[in-house]
């Protein structure tokens, strides 16, 4: 059990938790939170697996660094879309299947 494997394993569990969290709640803000946790899990797997041998690997580290910055931009875009949906429908939830065009 190395530090890398511990956090890679936690990352995999976080990812699965995030998947359930995106699917289950209807509230959009909670879906966005779960989506972020999914991303963090994937980042942990990338960096954790990269240093299985014990030495840190700069290549996945650099990719995760860009990934974190992209994740915050995606969150901002998602929140803007959710806000727009709320202004149009007055709700912070996706409309049920029947009401969709």
């Amino acid at each position: 059990m190395t530090t890398g494997m511990i956090f890679a394993g936690s990352g995999a569990i976080l990812f699965a938790m995030g998947v359930a969290g995106v699917l289950l709640p209807t509230h959009l803000l909670r879906k966005i939170l779960a989506f972020n946790i999914m991303g963090s899990g994937a980042f942990l797997v990338l960096v954790g697996l990269g240093q299985r041998s014990g030495e840190p690997d700069p290549v996945p580290q650099a990719m995760v660094l860009t990934g974190i910055v992209v994740a915050v931009a995606a969150t901002a875009l998602a929140l803007a879309l959710a806000r727009r949906l709320q202004r149009l429908t007055g709700r912070m939830e996706l409309p049920p299947e029947a009401e969709r065009d």
């Binding site: 530090t3 960096v47 840190p56 650099a62 995760v64 915050v72």
Partner: peptide
């Protein structure tokens, strides 16, 4: 920080 990725730790603390 524990994964010896100080660059990401800095970015995560400010952004995440």
């Amino acid at each position: 920080a524990r994964l010896r990725a100080p660059d990401i730790a800095l970015a995560e603390a400010a952004i995440g």
